[in-house]
Design a protein around this nucleic acid. Structure first.
Lengths: 323, 323
DNA sequence: CTGAAAGCGCTTACAG
DNA sequence: CTGAAAGCGCTTACAG
């Protein structure tokens, strides 16, 4: 029997007779034959692999995202290769090069926070590899991306604090060169306006996510003549640092100061003093959506249509979780 | 110029003249040529890929291990493909099948806690893929593995409690079908003997890592006529659950009850009541060692020597971290 | 030093 | 329905 017949039989090609298929499959099982996927992929000029680049898997936000991506990918029999930049722009460049070398069929990328130029992403486009930006995105470029509904989530968080009677709500915002930070800030301002609470620029502090900057910002805010009674933070780790420093240096105000931020972490249940609520970004769902977008792209490419596919921008709704 | 010459030039083959190499490399750069790694691997019958199977990346222990593996692998220009079983034995079987299909050059595997038979691992051997067991290992089989020094670590933890004056130290041990659990239990017993503190079987409870079982075990222990004044736990999450239930139901004893367990987690710094110490298993180092072992195996295979390589068993020392 | 040829393990258009 | 042949993009033994 020829290799071509065996190949067709194993792939359930309708041209092959039922009897032949049966015999082939029986022997394949008996001999423990497992087809060489690498050879198949090579022949088909498809890797059936998605490349994923995230900053750090110690941050469970990204692990959940990867899980969402994997759920969608495994349904399509795709492999997922995950790598981490640790926020290093040079590593990011190498990882992208590596994805091109390995001819991934598509990529999902969270840009490192230190990435300055967009050239590396264009190389993916030159190489014909579709990709979507995940969570963080890159200035004005016309690329696909999936993000949380930053404005809506921030509004929900701040409205919750307003409804609980707070008038002086501080915002610890993220680095202003990230659009994400600006959008959450905008949501904060929107909520204040909606509730006709005056906006006080002295209550907004920009931090770089390091504990030190958060501590310093909280110290400045708490020493205002009219200090905040609540904090809305850019990210859960900032919330935890806020509570830590309040406990250490402003323990009088600790009980009456309420904190809400982006990011719902499992570890929070073990805390004694914890944020009163958090915005759950639903990163699992974000991951699923990003993978779906990539597959739409891959299928669009496979069809070799002339028409360009317009850049997609998906915002995943988020929920307020009360602890 | 022929493809063979180009190939040799790009690979710095010494047979090629310096001038030719230069010209080839210049043009490659100019034309943005990036070699197809998949084709190279296929030709070489090597995937330059390590397969890693862990239970769950939400557990940072495994993320650190993966980071260690990647550090070693990237030095050898190897890719790492990580997948999770979520403790599901059927998924584990599929992932192993997938690794064989994709012809990984080696595998690092933490068996799921529900794995009953060893047949799936033998398939790797049949396929000529070397592998090492990581952290958890599998009964009497003669396979390579890398683990923490479970006995030594447990002794350190319990000795620390003994030195602090505790005489009644409870042990919440892991599932007894895991050798890891037995070894940590043995370390506990060893330490008691060394310090001539009598062993009381009533102070040992086996749990399955679920909060419910831990709560129940703590309730039983605390209601003894002579309850424990300290806990030595199988794993950090158990420590946290112990503290949680003490806080809720035995708050009188909370202050004077001390807890030590395996596993050093970053989140612990945010807790108000926390374990007084933990055993740091150094999973990053474990990951490095596992990868090194795999590469030794791969190189041994490549040499096609007749002699069998004896199964290796590496125990990585662990440290006591005081909070 | 350079190049023609074979081959890695498959799939697929084509011929029979 | 089955099989011979070409080819995916490289590397490498071999000839020149």
């Amino acid at each position: 029997m020829s290799v071509s017949t065996v190949s067709k039989a194993l792939n359930d090609n309708p041209l092959i007779s039922a009897l032949t298929k049966e015999r082939v499959k029986k022997l394949a099982k008996e001999w423990n034959y497992i087809p060489n996927e690498a050879a198949r992929h090579f022949k088909q000029s498809k890797s059936y692999t998605l490349g994923v680049i995230v900053p750090d898997l110690l941050d469970q936000f990204y692990v959940l995202a990867v899980n969402g991506i994997e759920k969608v990918a495994s349904k399509k029999n795709y492999n997922v290769i995950v790598s981490q930049t640790h926020e290093d722009a040079d590593i990011e460049e190498k990882l992208i090069e590596n994805m091109i070398k390995n001819r991934v069929d598509g990529a999902i990328i969270t840009v490192s926070k230190n990435t300055k130029n967009v050239e590396r992403f264009q190389r993916l486009t030159y190489a014909g590899i579709p990709f979507v930006f995940f969570a963080r995105y890159f200035s004005e470029q016309e690329y696909d991306y999936v993000s949380t509904d930053n404005v809506g989530g921030a509004k929900k968080a701040v409205e919750y604090l307003l409804k609980r009677g707070h008038k002086r709500i501080a915002h610890l915002m993220g680095p202003s060169f990230l659009k994400t930070s600006i959008q959450r800030y905008n949501g904060y301002v929107d909520a204040l306006m909606k509730y006709k609470v005056s906006f006080d620029p002295a209550l907004v502090e920009e931090v770089d996510l390091s504990p030190e900057q958060t501590y310093a910002a909280v110290r400045r805010l708490m020493q205002l003549d009219n200090p905040p009674t609540a904090f809305f933070t850019f990210k859960n780790y900032i919330s935890l640092d806020v509570i830590k420093i309040l406990k250490q240096e402003f323990s009088q105000q600790l009980e009456k100061t309420e904190v809400v931020g982006f990011g719902n972490l499992p570890l929070i249940q073990y805390l004694d003093y914890k944020p009163i609520a958090a915005i759950d970004e639903n990163s699992f769902r974000m991951g699923e959506k990003a993978a779906e977008l990539i597959f739409e792209n891959i299928e669009h490419n496979d069809k070799e249509l002339e028409e360009e596919r317009p850049a997609q921008h998906m915002r995943i709704p988020c929920r307020l979780i009360m602890y």
